[in-house]
Every structure is written in C-alpha cells, then in structure tokens.
Amino acid sequence: MPDRTIQLKIKRQDDQSASPYWQTFSIPYRPNMNVISCLQYIAAHPTTADGTETTPVVWDCSCLEEVCGACTMVINGEVRQSCSALVDRLLEEDDSIKLEPMTKFPVVRDLFVDRSRLFEDLKKTQGWVPIDGLYSLGPGPWESPAKQDTRYDLSRCMSCGCCLEVCPQYTRNNNFVGAAVISQVRYFNTHPIGANNAAERLNAMMEPGGISDCGNAQNCVKVCPKDIPLTESIADVGRMTTIHSIKQFFRGE
C-alpha cells in the first residue's frame, strides 16, 4: 500500500500568453484524498514523475467545502470543484487524474483562471435588492415558506462558473451572460423589493448577450454543483422578458 502512487496529469500554462503544456506528477496514495490534497502535495514537492524539478502548480481555492466556488477546474474532462473531487472515486473510472483549467475563461496561470466577466455581468444586471440604506427601518417583507424555498435554491449560486464552462453558447468570442446571471435575475425579480428594479434587469436581459442568446442545450443544470434549477430560471426570465417587451411595445415607450 505505501508504494501505491497516483498519476496526476496537469495542463499548465506559465502566464496568460504562454502556450500550455502537460506535466505528470506521481503522488503517494493515501486514503480519503481529494484533488486539493494532491495539489497541496505538489506544492510541497514540485517534482514531476520523471524527476524534473518544476514550480508548484498554481490554482485557485479558498473554503475547500464546496461553498465558495473558487477551486473549479476540469477534472477528467468534467468541470467541478476540486475539493469535492475524491481521488478514490476518480480512480474507479480512470487510472489517472487529468486536471485542466476551465476553457471559457482566460488562464492567468496553470489552473487559475480569470472569472471577472461573471462578476461584471452581475453588476450589469443589477444583482441586488435596492434597499434604502443600512438604517433601522423595520423588517423586510414577509414571505411564504414555499417562496423562500424557491429563492433559497437560487441564492446558493456561488459563481463557480460550471454552468458557463459547459454552455455551448457561452464562449470567449461572445458576450452571453449565461445561466448563473440569468438565474440571479430571477432571484432578484421574485423578491418583492428586488422587483422594484425588475424592468432594469429585464432591459439588460434583452441586450445582446442576454436571455435570448440561450440555446437551450440545458447542460448548465446538469453540472450545477448546488442543483440550482437553472433551466427553470431561464424559462422564467424568458416569460418575464416576453411580458415586459409586450408591455413596452404597447405602452409606446
């Protein structure tokens, strides 16, 4: 058992403009490892399988509990968080583990990508409840448990980018906002006060790159680590924009 090693193939890239290359690492197996612990081992022992000294692999991570969304990468061809990617499970399907950065975002270095586009899009769609400031003004509106339940499901989006990685319509050559942002529009538009800005959000959704650029491949909902009903959000925002645009048309604004 102590001799058992895991083969880790990692797609590396030294900086934004460098060309990517592959390196293989051999890591001593321990029970209950996850991909993060492999990367931590490499950080402490940056030597490739053939004995060449190299630099530690750069990757993004924070909570390691699958609630912050930072450590998302493509593992054995599938986009997911590396903290909840257990080595034992991965080795049941393949004899080695392959790590690649997400492809829809510019690589900063190695497995570390720049997801700022996602946060910019949240800004454009006014992803917030327009409260009157932080003074004490009493409680918020009441809400039925059923509605809370729906909103809770939507509010768990950790902006990890899995839905964008698998979306054929979301590419680096266009400006589609993708499921995560559309779902947030639904989240805020279904809040009684958030709805005060519904029109502005729907206007943003009608822009090029908005809701109508969805191609209904429905990959997003299948990879969402938090099981957010993304396709229902897309349809709901579709309905909202339909009604919104018809109203706009007949109001003649």
Binding site: E200, N203, S212, E253
Partner: peptide
C-alpha cells in the same frame, strides 16, 4: 447596460426583436 431607464436600449430592442 447600466443605465437605469425603464426602457430597453435600442440595441436591446433590436436584438431581442430579431
């Protein structure tokens, strides 16, 4: 896209309509 007018921009109208 950040303008807070309640009407969609003309680019949005055109894109969405198409």
């Amino acid at each position: 896209m950040t303008q807070s007018s309640s009407s969609p921009s003309s680019a949005a109208r055109f894109h969405f309509l198409l």
